[in-house]
Design a protein around this nucleic acid. Structure first.
Length: 623
RNA sequence: GGAGCCUUAGCUCAAUUGGUUAGAGCGCUGCCCUGUCACGGCAGAGGUUGCGGGUUCGAGUCCCGUAGGCUCCGCCA
């Protein structure tokens, strides 16, 4: 495959021309197509077009009616053009224009004219011209709008109920366009690299582990249910067994869990799987893809390769498996400084095999007592017994615990944490895992409390690698897969797996993180039936269950499945970050609200009795 | 399942310690206005302060409950 194919869309592509070799169907520029209904879009006309006739169609953005002359800002998705109605030239047309109101859909014809000296509008790309209309057709009248389209509106309920209006707003339209651009770039890059886009079933099989499934009753098989896929995981591995070698899919995934600003019950992943690859091959591919995506979406050049942190290191330094490294303050071990301390809390933690660690929250000494309490409350929520602190103000250390410190301890602390006036030092003393988690959470909250706003152009990508393979669940009293049951243990840790030292086994698994948001994750998979069976056994899936639930996969592994691995990128979150949005709802055309309701159509809704009877199901819900 | 914040006109918001007839801007309706682009001017309509209960001489304001929205925790292989 020619290298040039891997360079991503050119700047011309951003105007819709498409990269070399890409399918051109539907890829033409919006204005290059022959237009019969209208002569062009509302963002197109310039001074060079003065004197020409033009026919435009669109929505009435605003009407400025001077009693005589009337101005209308005509808007379509490409821009705004000012239309002038002059009663002295076209009385009937101008007369009709008096009755226009916001969001009426109209078609106008007229002559492109240079605006009068001094009345140009620098805010519009078409601001040097206007169309003197001699014909006006009202294509559809609009009622009074439920909310204004030209300003930010907080009421998301109302926006979602009238989403088609919300999406007319330029900001939202830009998000949709950005989404299209990102997804097209992903497709182009993968196509250029020899990947095949293959659709896998939406009506598929329930998986025992993982999130709750959405179930679909089968009419033809009464009492049986399809599950909507949480991810195309098994199918894509079976495509590797099928010899596809390079697969991808812009895949809709479904998980019946509670919603969040960054979680919808249905969401979109760029799902990728390759045969005969190492993790390094995947990292290189994904980095190349991000270079192309950020070039196409933002015109920025990002730096590769991305830094890497092991999971252990990420937890140790940032208290998170998806560190936000834009704020450079890290969690630091101070156990050695307090090796001889008499302070009971530190002494107790160290004596019981725990750690004492600290975070210097630079510039947070101005924190209020209430905010300290909030941080303490949060620390307790994540398993700490409390949250010790030192406020460094006006040259003195204000703290309930500093009286227990020796001068030498204070001096060492000052040096290691680079403590200066205005800092707030927070301590964690407990088992390593708890301290990391607590200080990691506190670290993120501290950034909010400082009111720190990061440079919006800053893009801190990183790979988190060497995730643990397994995690103990107290609730279920069993080992669960941290990534998923098909993830490959690191070769050098296989002896640990055999020795049943499950907590120590690392996986060939990796996440990609951008500015503290997990935007993708993947692994090298198990491709041997024996090893997969061992893995299932560890997870408490017995032989019988293995045969009934995963027999197809185990069988495929026995018929020559190649070594393979892959990754899935969360496109909604990625596009959210690119758009600078605070919720993935802002980059999804028709999202659901917090309770999983799509307010515009009102789904979900009750099913009538006949429908349920046909499906052989009844509801346990009391009416 | 849990915690926090919020709910006043179509929209965005205000209303002092609990005190007169709940206000403003935008939008809407009518009239006027020939170079605006947040056009301008005059006039007008529009409210069971989410809902239910309580305290009080008096509640948008205080208390209890409830509904809805958002954010977070749990959950999300």
């Amino acid at each position: 495959m020619a290298e040039a194919e891997n360079q991503g869309p050119s700047s011309a592509d951003r105007n819709g021309a498409g990269p070399r070799g890409a399918c051109r169907l539907g890829g033409e520029s919006a204005d290059s197509r022959a237009m019969n209904f209208r002569s062009g879009h509302c963002g197109a006309l310039r001074v060079k077009d003065v004197g020409q006739r033009a026919t435009l169609a669109g929505w009435v953005g605003s009407r400025r009616d001077h009693g005589g002359v009337i101005f209308v800002d005509l808007r379509d998705r490409e821009g705004i053009t000012q239309v002038v109605f002059r009663p002295e030239e076209h009385a009937a047309t101008a007369g009709a224009a008096h009755n226009l109101r916001d969001e009426d859909v109209i078609k106008i014809s007229g002559t492109v004219a240079k605006r009068l000296e001094g009345t140009e509008n620098a805010k519009l790309s078409t601001g040097e011209i206007e169309i003197v209309a001699d014909d006006l057709q009202i294509l559809n009248k609009a009622d009074v709008l439920p909310f204004p389209l030209d300003e930010q509106i907080a009421n998301e309920d109302l926006r979602l109920t009238h989403r088609y209006l919300d999406l007319r707003r330029p900001g939202m339209a830009a998000n949709l366009q950005l989404r299209h651009r990102v997804i097209k770039t992903v497709r182009d890059i993968l196509d250029g690299d020899g990947f095949w886009e293959i659709e896998t079933p939406i009506l598929s099989k329930s998986t025992p582990e993982g999130a709750r499934d959405f179930l679909v009753p089968s009419r033809l098989n009464p009492g049986n249910f399809y599950a909507l896929p949480q991810a195309p995981q098994q199918y894509k591995q079976l495509l590797m067994a099928a010899g596809v070698e390079k697969y991808f899919q812009i895949a809709r995934c479904f998980r019946d869990e509670d919603l969040r600003a960054d979680r919808q019950p249905e969401f979109t992943q760029a799902d990728i799987e390759m045969s005969f690859v190492t993790a390094e091959d995947l990292f290189a591919l994904i980095e190349k893809m991000f270079v192309a995506v950020f070039r196409a979406a933002h015109g920025v050049e990002i730096t590769t390769p991305f830094p890497r942190l092991t999971h252990r290191e990420a937890m140790d330094r940032f208290g998170s498996d998806k560190p936000d490294t834009r704020w450079t303050q890290e969690i630091v071990d101070v156990g050695d400084i307090f090796a001889g301390t008499e302070f009971k809390v530190f002494r107790g933690a160290l004596d019981s095999g725990g750690v004492v660690r600290a975070l210097n929250a630079k510039g947070l000494a101005k924190i209020t007592t209430g905010q300290i309490e909030e941080l303490t409350e949060m620390a307790k929520q994540f398993g700490a017994k409390g949250l010790a602190f030192i406020k460094c103000e006006n040259g003195e250390w204000k703290s309930p615990i500093v009286k227990f410190f020796t001068e030498a301890e204070k001096a060492s602390l000052r040096e290691r944490l680079r403590i200066e006036d205005g800092d707030l030092v927070l301590f964690g003393a407990d088992q390593w895992e708890i301290v990391c988690e607590v200080l990691g959470r506190v670290r993120l909250r501290a950034v909010e409390l400082i009111g720190l706003t990061h440079d919006p152009k800053r893009l801190d990508f990183l790979w988190v690698v060497d995730f643990p393979l397994l995690a103990w669940s107290d609730e279920e009293q069993k080992w669960n897969a941290v990534h998923h049951p098909f993830t490959r243990p690191k070769a050098e840790d296989l002896p640990l797996l055999e020795a049943k030292k499950y907590a120590e086994v690392r996986a060939e698994a990796y996440d990609i993180v951008l500015n503290g948001v997990e935007i993708g994750g993947g692994s090298i998979r198990i491709h041997e039936a024996d090893l997969q069976s061992v893995m299932f056994n560890v997870l408490g899936v017995n032989e019988e269950q293995q045969a009934s639930m995963f027999g197809h996969l185990l069988k495929a592994f026995k018929f020559g499945t190649p070594p393979h691995g892959g990754i899935a990128l969360g496109l909604d979150r990625l596009i959210m970050l690119l758009a600078g949005a605070e919720s993935i709802r802002d980059v999804i055309a028709f999202p659901k609200n917090n309770r999983g309701i799509e307010l515009m159509t009102g789904s979900p809704s009750p099913a009538d009795f006949r429908q349920l009877r046909e499906l052989s199901i009844s509801s346990t819900k009391k009416a």
